[in-house]
Design a protein around this nucleic acid. Sequence first.
DNA 1: GCAGTACAGTACTCATCGGTACGATATCCG
DNA 2: CGGATATCGTACCGATGAGTACTGTACTGC
Lengths: 178, 178
Amino acid sequence: MRVFWEKGFEGATLDDLTAAMGIERPSLYAAFGSKQDLFARAVEHYLEGPSAYFEEALSEPTSRRVADALLCGAADLHTDPTTPSGCLTVHGAFLRGASPDGPGARLAAVRDGAEAAIGERLRRAVEEGDLPSDADPSALAAYLRSVTYGMAVKATGGATREELQGVIDLTLSAWPTA
Amino acid sequence: MRVFWEKGFEGATLDDLTAAMGIERPSLYAAFGSKQDLFARAVEHYLEGPSAYFEEALSEPTSRRVADALLCGAADLHTDPTTPSGCLTVHGAFLRGASPDGPGARLAAVRDGAEAAIGERLRRAVEEGDLPSDADPSALAAYLRSVTYGMAVKATGGATREELQGVIDLTLSAWPTA
DNA sequence: GCAGTACAGTACTCATCGGTACGATATCCG
DNA sequence: CGGATATCGTACCGATGAGTACTGTACTGC
């Protein structure tokens, strides 16, 4: 997973992958079938492990705390010194092949699903009166995702957690209150 | 330029490039030297052409108008139907090689330079009283760049100009006033 | 009209990538 | 202890990428 995270799908060669896993190529193919299948498994692990903050964030009681948890979770993850910088799913947004069943499409679905989930959560917040009735949950979700993507790009380029905190603070200062 | 813009440095093959230019490989090498050199030229043209909105935006009279022009210019560019989606420099943020003189490093310098230029402009705005004295120009610049990068990622994934406008509106609602 | 030169295009080289066949080695069961 | 089997690793294959040598042609200068 870390190899894909660090180098992306195309940047990760089989030599990289086998070296990181301590197994040889035939074993890898016996266990996973293909590079694409292995990547799919890596994405699953990423979503269940490092990116698990996401689901937890959606469970926060107020929309503002949801937003804060999403942004801080992403910033923590993208600058965690024990893991590669940046975001696996954002890294995968720039794949050569655009085949509808390829890894790029899968990641696009993951990203779209995440934004939709945030939108749903914020829609509930409007219903609960936690957000003003004229707030646009979809736009707020797109905003949060944009900032998150942007932080991933900046983290890939070497931004620090502190810099990203400044971004988060400004982002949240735009958050509407009921 | 368009080929690199659309496919990135590594995604653009020599066949793509020669086909787009209507010349053959040896002519390309005679004229530009190498793929990297050609890419450097493409980046120059990108900065001077499509991305020229940037310098104009910095000349806007108020910091808020600077921010608005930067964000709208980026959104327009990234969703212009006559050009590839997304941003050449963001696309290049995810290159395999990390060689200090490679195309990745060059683009990183471009991105860092852009953020620094925005920071400078906003610092001036603080001095001029156009921004409150407790505003943090660097943080605001990082915020603008994050949103811009995020819009580029979203545009690459197919976001529309209208969606991005929602992001811009929210982004600017966080803008401090003197 | 002819020699010299510059150029365009074809076809090649070398490296690397994803994926696999095959031989060597170890393991398990009778 | 022996043989079938499962597993591991080396070595290979076809495809594709960047970069280049070579040949034929057109054009210039005399």
